[in-house]
């Protein structure tokens, strides 16, 4: 197991509020790493630091893959996707609503197409290299449309898609940037059980077939416990547990964080079921 992403001593303060406090963990290549924790634990802040939307107060974020080693905290926002190959989705979906599904996926391949079009100049005069690159881009888009069952909706405006399809499109769009690390912010939020089952298969395929590391924020424990290889638990910005799902599920600190300090040790059976155990 090689560490794809290494987070060391990450701290993020907003004025007097410490959203993330001295957090360290690693995410391996070809593995699904889940970050879980109660609301307000700082999960999305970690994502925003990773993807360049915040500059961390303290800490080092190292991403290492075949293409080189990048210090994410020093890169410009757009370079994190362009050079370090980190793609992300958003908790509240951010699609290009008035563009079609296919256009969303083509925009995701912007940098590759930009180079092929000679930074627009060659493309403007109809250079065949751009036509070829665009064709390849459409093929990649078609591949991900098929993987996410959106082929029939390819020419729809993205804003008109049903909710579940929008979630899938966001993942397809992130994958079209050819990432090495895919960060998903609550991808199962608002999905029905059948859809979140499909999501599990999709994410497992992205890990196993495409060899992409997945970093996942999720509240839906059925997703987290079934597919993640590694779980990091945050509470009040601190890491309170780290390990394989089975170990984390039974960790008393985790149970305390989710349920508060309880005097009786017995958990209500439905909560145990939610956590994936047997009552």
């Amino acid at each position: 197991m090689t560490a794809l992403l290494t987070v060391e001593h990450l701290t993020m303060r907003f004025g007097g509020l410490t959203a993330v406090d001295d957090l360290s963990f690693t995410a391996a290549a070809r593995e699904i790493t889940a970050i879980i924790g109660p609301n307000g634990a700082g999960k999305t802040t970690v994502f925003n630091c990773l993807t360049g939307f915040y500059k961390p107060t303290v800490g080092r974020l190292t991403l290492a893959h075949d293409g080189g080693t990048y210090l994410l905290e020093q890169l410009d926002g757009h370079c994190i996707a362009k050079d370090a190959k980190v793609a992300r989705t958003f908790q509240n979906i951010r699609l290009f609503a008035r563009m079609t599904v296919l256009e969303n996926l083509i925009v995701a391949q912007h940098n590759r197409l930009m180079r092929a079009s000679g930074y627009t100049l060659l493309g403007l005069f109809g250079h065949p290299r751009y036509a070829r690159a665009e064709k390849e881009a459409v093929e990649l888009a078609r591949h991900w449309l098929e993987r996410t069952r959106l082929t029939d909706l390819a020419d729809w405006e993205a804003g008109n898609l049903p909710y579940g399809a929008q979630r899938r499109l966001e993942i397809a769009r992130a994958m079209c940037t050819r990432p090495t690390l895919l960060c998903l912010d609550e991808p199962a939020a608002g999905l029905n059980p059948r859809e979140s089952g499909e999501l599990n298969h999709l994410l497992q395929a992205i890990r196993d077939e495409d060899g992409v590391g997945v970093l996942l924020i999720e509240h839906d424990m059925s997703v987290v416990m079934q597919i993640s290889d590694h779980v990091v638990v945050l509470d009040y910005g601190r890491r309170i547990a780290d390990g394989p799902p089975e170990a984390v599920r039974n960790d008393p600190a985790v149970i305390r964080a989710y349920l508060g300090e309880e005097e009786d040790e017995e958990l209500p059976p439905e909560i145990v079921a939610d956590l994936g155990g047997t009552p």
């Binding site: 993807t51 757009h78 995701a108």
Partner: peptide, 9 residues
């Protein structure tokens, strides 16, 4: 924001 997350400058 989505543009930036896709590597567009």
């Amino acid at each position: 924001i989505a543009c930036r997350s896709l590597g567009i400058n």
